[in-house]
Design a protein around this nucleic acid. Structure first.
Length: 357
DNA sequence: GTATGCTTTCGGC
DNA sequence: TTACGGCCGAAAGCATAC
């Protein structure tokens, strides 16, 4: 099954201040460039009634909520991480196998403890919804299916506070009428391509020739889309370890191509990442920089070393070199700038010396 | 031909 | 009038080694 926390950030804010519950609540990432520049992270369902959506520019959300008693709040990640941790702890007690995905989602394999029965799985899901609600005051939505792919789509079917079961024999009929972009991996661009192929629903995809599909999307993705249309997925629910990359990105005060200006911001990000690495005891082999250009297109450059990097100065120097290259290879101005490290290895334990004793 | 590694882009939340 | 975040992982595309 897939568990999804309903309008999570906004629901956390409602929990902290129940007085706002009946108003539109919009949780925002303010970029700091101007008063209202930034994007909507999450909105509660009252705000959604007015057409407010995740990813929308804040000014647009304000426009839609003009003359309404709405609440706009900045994201408070620390709060959401704490609530998330508490909920995840509860969910884990219901699962044979557990896989957290991001801050507000988790897959649970309950095959064994439900003895393969969907009715038993339903009872588990209902109990879990009650327990999370009473302990953390957060409503969740759950999809139960024969595999992760179907569970994920089922969870989306009814929310908030929804529970949707899709048994194996119901899978085809359940999926067929749904728009193809419900499938993981079909975003805006892929959806456009699908549309040009005459594929609007998952049912259309079922009838589409697999050879043509791999011709358009490549061997692996084409085969995946074909299987997905039939509700086929054998990927296991797997515990995830630590993150494989750490990145920081922010919006610049103004668009620029000036390396010195960009490095001011980037150095702060490097320090932040470096501190985080230190806490986790990690070294890294790969440095990437990413730039969001004025027209919101994205460019990135990266460099991988044979052995791990250790010093903050090295990280900063490599990032600067990569940005120099990136700027060199475009005429566009840069709006947002970020840096990412990956290719982690564990820092070797401090060698103990006799003199330490 | 296959395996592997690196860079870049895409998509989800 | 224009206006728009900050993360993460997956996979395509390419190069290289054997």
């Amino acid at each position: 099954m897939l568990v999804d926390f309903d309008y999570f950030f906004a629901q956390c804010e409602e929990g902290r201040n129940p007085l706002i519950r009946d108003k539109p609540v919009v949780v925002c990432v303010y970029s700091g460039r101007t008063e209202d520049s930034g994007a909507v992270s999450t909105a509660n369902y009252v705000a959604r009634e007015y057409g407010v959506k995740s990813g929308m520019p804040i000014f647009l959300a304000k426009k839609k909520l003009a003359n309404v008693d709405a609440v706009f709040l900045p994201v408070d990640r620390d709060l959401y991480e704490e609530v998330s941790f508490n909920i995840m702890s509860v969910l884990k007690t219901y699962a044979d196998l557990f896989e957290q995905v991001g801050i507000d989602e988790a897959y649970l394999d309950v095959t064994e403890r439900a003895h393969g029965s969907f009715e038993e799985a339903r009872r588990l899901a209902e109990k879990m919804m009650d327990e999370v609600k009473s302990r953390e005051k957060i409503s969740i939505s759950i999809g139960v299916g024969p595999n992760k792919l179907v569970a994920k789509i089922a969870a989306d079917f009814k929310k908030p506070n929804g529970l949707t079961l899709v048994k194996p024999e119901q899978t085809q009929d359940f999926l067929a009428p749904l728009p193809v972009n419900r499938l993981l991996g079909v975003g805006k661009k892929t959806n456009e391509i699908m549309k040009s192929l005459g594929v609007k629903t998952i049912g259309d995809l079922v009838r589409f020739d697999v050879k043509k599909l791999t011709g358009v999307f490549g061997e692996k993705l084409g085969a995946y889309f074909h299987d997905a249309a039939f509700g086929l997925d054998d990927s296991p629910v797997k515990e995830r370890g630590e993150a494989e990359s750490i990145s920081r990105i922010s919006t610049l005060k103004e668009d620029t191509r000036d390396l010195t200006v960009i490095m001011n911001t980037i150095k702060a990000h490097c320090e932040d990442i470096y501190m985080s690495l230190g806490q986790k005891g990690l070294r890294f082999k790969t440095v990437s920089v990413v730039a969001v250009m004025k027209p919101l297109s994205i460019r990135s450059r990266s460099k991988t070393f044979e052995s791990s990097l250790t010093h903050l100065e090295m990280l900063e120097n490599v990032a600067e070199e990569l940005f120099r290259r990136l700027i060199d290879e475009t005429n566009l101005e840069i709006r947002r700038a970020g840096v990412k490290v990956s290719g982690f290895s564990k820092e070797p334990d401090q060698q103990k010396h006799l003199s330490d004793f």
